[in-house]
């Protein structure tokens, strides 16, 4: 057993998992509050990636891309804000008019939204793969072994740290603030929450916005990490993050993060030790197994059927 190789896969897996986790939180939060899967969420993530790339190109044109921290912060905030507007729009257009209608209607309109956003980006930005120049290079060599050096790049450190910070901030938001309380109240009984003065529509919109903001961070991280994006990245990442949310227990915030990390690790180790071509098969195999044996996920609570 080559421990260096193992450690490297672990680092890669955690990085990938952090990104999946950030997207999965959006699925899980929206599911928690309206009990439906937001199938346009993967596209929101893709749009976040595009926003960060466009912001970078504007910075470059303005000649401020030399100041790296400023550029990164601009990319982060501009992309979070613009993508949040898309998240809000998805709720406003595809969900709110259908509130109170049968569940399948909202599901179909979300899928329609997803197709629309994908094609919108394909037409407006072109179908070709967009390159992104590496902004953060270098890293730390953690361990040297005869045939392999374990690298922890600065980019990976940033991804893992930023994810951790965002997780803490959002958990506090949900647990401690009045907005979070309102969200949990709406999760349990929307009518009652409304009767107590909670603006239910606005709370649901805020949930979509929060999910979109996190997805846009994930999009930006992927843009910087892999250096290429295209209009189609949202589909696979979205489905994998959905798998992560289901694995962790849909509706549970820590579950989404845990599920994301596990999916990232499974993918990294599968590609590292087995066949890279079959890594998606492994991921979705997990989805099937979870749905059969533990549909409420690792940290979720089994739904008790009320009679």
């Amino acid at each position: 057993m080559d421990w260096a190789y193992f450690l490297q896969q672990l680092i890669n897996g955690l990085t990938l998992g952090a990104i999946y986790g950030l997207i999965a939180i959006g699925y899980t939060m929206v599911y928690g509050i309206i009990g439906m899967i937001n199938f346009a969420h993967g596209e929101i993530y893709m749009i976040g990636a595009f926003h960060s790339l466009i912001t970078f190109l504007i910075c470059q044109a303005a000649g401020i891309s030399g100041i790296l921290p400023l550029t990164l912060l601009l990319m982060l905030f501009v992309s979070m804000i613009l993508t949040s507007i898309y998240g809000w729009g998805v709720e406003r257009v595809a969900y709110r008019p259908l509130r109170g209608s049968f569940r399948l209607a909202a599901l179909i309109s979300a899928i329609g939204m997803s197709i629309f956003l994908q094609n919108f980006v394909q037409i407006s930005q072109g179908a070709r793969v967009k390159p992104m120049q590496p902004l953060i290079e270098g890293g730390i060599t953690l361990m040297r072994s005869p045939n392999f050096d374990v690298q922890l790049s600065y980019m990976q450190i940033i991804i893992i740290l930023l994810t951790f910070v965002l997780m803490v901030v959002f958990s506090t938001l949900i647990a401690k603030t009045s907005l979070g309380r309102a969200q949990r109240a709406c999760e349990q009984d929307r009518t009652m929450a409304g009767l107590l003065g909670v603006n239910v529509d606005r709370t649901i919109s805020t949930t979509f916005v929060m999910g979109a903001a996190l997805a846009s961070v994930a999009g930006m991280m992927v843009t910087l990490y892999y250096g290429v994006i295209d209009f189609y990245i949202g589909f696979l990442a979205g489905v994998k993050a959905f798998t992560a949310a289901v694995l962790g227990g849909i509706g549970s915030l820590p579950g989404a993060m845990l599920g994301g990390l596990l999916i990232g690790l499974i993918e990294a180790f599968w590609s590292g030790y087995l066949t890279i071509e079959y890594k998606d098969v492994a991921t979705f195999g997990i989805l099937v197994l979870v749905l059969i044996f533990r549909p409420w996920g690792l940290l979720g609570k089994p739904e008790v059927e009320k009679v």
Binding site: S178, L179, R181, A182, A185, A193, L196, G197, V198
Partner: peptide
């Protein structure tokens, strides 16, 4: 506390 949401918001 949820019942006092408006004042808090």
């Amino acid at each position: 506390i949820v019942a006092q949401h408006n004042a808090l918001m």
